[in-house]
Structure formats: structure tokens, C-alpha cells
Design a protein around this nucleic acid. Structure first.
Length: 260
DNA sequence: GGTAATGTTAGACT
DNA sequence: TAGTCTAACATTAC
């Protein structure tokens, strides 16, 4: 699930469920913690601490702890999620780390494919991906967006949107959605875009992400969206067939009739 | 059994 | 140098 709107949702979810409670026990249910710099013993050392607050940077969820000066940072990979339940409920099948609280509840970090990661760092910038990360889309002015496009004008527009070093937080699903809402064929080069098209993509980038955050990732509330991906899905605009094509190593879904 | 999957990164190629 | 492509990571769901 996890692109910017999803991680924003995880942040709000963690804030509304797990802050200020004592972590009585941390259960590590996987042999290796996949990516990240934290070791099993380092993670265990957080027992007795509390989550104080949470932030999001790109697709990363950053949590501040009460005792430990360092921040526990979660990345979700392609298949990550958070699940807060009562202690007596069975852990989810893909639960990799469980934070048990003394309140009788627990927070599970799910990661089906182990492509996510867990970090413990003094500053978020200690993580290379974050250090090199481009600006947050919501804080990006039209002027800056246009100059980024100019700077990377030889790039394919879908790759441009997905490149974390250019703009943070957009992945395969939302780049498709932005281009669908903009009526732009994902195979286009940035260079080929007119001034009008560039400004439109800028507007739609913010609009799509904002809408997705607002409805908390419930696709049924966004009937005009092309996502989530589904085979044989019809275009919500013209009813035509959605096409799939590999672009930038990923499957791009788009409507050839509506996206020029 | 085959295929694809919302992310990141290293290495090879153009 | 910049951009693109492929493979790898690990695991499942359809």
C-alpha cells in the first residue's frame, strides 16, 4: 500500500492509537529485519520507552521516543502496514514486529514481502535515501516544480514523478493516477510537455495526493480514480479498456484514449 | 504452475 | 554525465 498518502495515514493511525503508552515488550517475528540499520538487540532496547510523536518524510514514518534520543524510523516497502489490536487478538500472518503495550493493546508492523526496513537514527538524514530525497509535494511551489521538470527534461514523465530524489513520496500507483487525472500519456518525455500540461501536472499532483489522504485510501470513495489497479478495469472517464505497459521497470496502467 | 505485486538499489548498457 | 534497463531482495495472492 505504502506511498505518500498511505504513509500519511499510517502516521495518523499511529498517533491516534499508540502514543504515550509504555512499550512493555517488543516481539521480533522474523529472522532478519530486512532492510534498515537496526539490530535485534537495539530494537529490544526500546522496551520500556514510549512513542511521543510521529512525522512523515516521503514514504518513511519517523517516530520520536520519550527516553531514547534517537528516532525509530519505519519504511514499509511494497507490502507494509500497521495494525493496532487488543493483546488477545491473534497476530496477523505477516506481522514482523509487534510492539506490546502495558495497556493490553499491541501495534504490529506488517511486512509481507520483506522489502521494508526499520532504522534507529539520530537524524532522519542519517538514512541515505532520506538525505538524498527531494522536496515534499505539498511544500513544492509551481515555480520549483517547473524548474525541476526543466532540469530533468530528458526524463520520462512517469519516472520523473516516481523518482524520490526529485520529489518525495510518489510511487507507481500515484504516478499513474496523477498522469491519468492530467490526461498525459505516461510514455511522454518531460521535454515534450507544453507549459499548460506542465502546470496541469503540478496541480493534479497536489490534488490527487490530497484527495487520497483525505479519504484515507478508500478507493470506493474516489470513483473517478483509475487506481487501484485491476485487470480489465474500465476507464472511469470513457469506459475504454485500461492498458498496461512496462515503464521504468514498473507496470504503468493508463487509458490510451484519455491520455495523450 | 505462471504471473504480478503500492519499493529501493546496484551494476551494466546506451 | 544522465537516463534507462535488468536483476535482486522475499513472499505471497490470484
Amino acid at each position: 500500500m505504502p506511498e505518500l498518502p498511505d504513509v500519511e495515514h499510517f502516521k495518523e493511525y499511529l498517533e491516534s492509537t499508540s502514543l504515550h503508552q509504555t512499550v512493555s515488550r517488543i516481539e521480533i517475528k522474523t529472522r532478519n529485519l530486512a532492510r534498515g540499520n537496526i539490530s535485534t538487540s537495539e530494537l529490544k532496547s526500546l522496551e520500556g520507552d514510549r512513542f511521543q510523536s510521529a512525522e512523515r518524510r516521503g514514504k518513511f514514518l519517523i517516530t520520536n521516543l520519550k527516553k531514547n534520543q534517537k528516532k525509530l524510523v519505519l519504511h514499509f516497502g511494497m507490502t507494509g502496514d500497521l495494525k493496532y489490536t487488543k493483546e488477545n487478538e491473534k497476530d496477523h500472518k505477516h506481522s514482523r514486529i509487534t510492539f506490546h503495550f502495558s495497556s493490553g493493546y499491541k501495534l504490529q508492523w506488517l511486512n509481507q514481502r520483506k522489502l521494508g526496513g526499520v532504522y534507529l537514527v539520530s537524524r532522519p538524514e542519517d538514512i541515505k535515501t532520506i538525505r538524498k530525497m527531494g522536496p515534499e509535494p505539498f511544500q513544492l511551489s509551481e515555480k520549483d516544480f517547473l524548474s525541476l521538470l526543466e532540469e530533468h527534461s530528458r526524463k520520462n514523465i512517469k519516472r520523473f514523478l516516481m523518482d524520490q530524489e526529485i520529489i518525495a513520496g510518489i510511487g507507481n500507483v500515484y504516478s499513474d493516477e496523477i498522469l491519468f487525472q492530467s490526461g498525459i500519456d505516461p510514455r511522454r518525455k518531460a521535454k515534450s510537455l507544453s507549459e499548460k500540461e506542465r502546470k496541469n501536472i503540478y496541480r493534479k499532483t497536489k490534488e490527487v495526493l490530497r484527495e487520497a489522504v483525505e479519504v484515507k485510501i478508500q478507493p470506493e470513495k474516489l470513483p473517478h480514480f483509475i487506481t487501484p489497479h485491476r485487470k480489465d478495469r474500465e476507464c472511469p472517464n470513457c469506459g475504454g479498456k485500461i492498458k498496461r505497459k512496462k515503464i521504468g521497470g514498473r507496470s504503468a496502467y493508463f487509458c490510451p484514449r484519455c491520455q495523450k
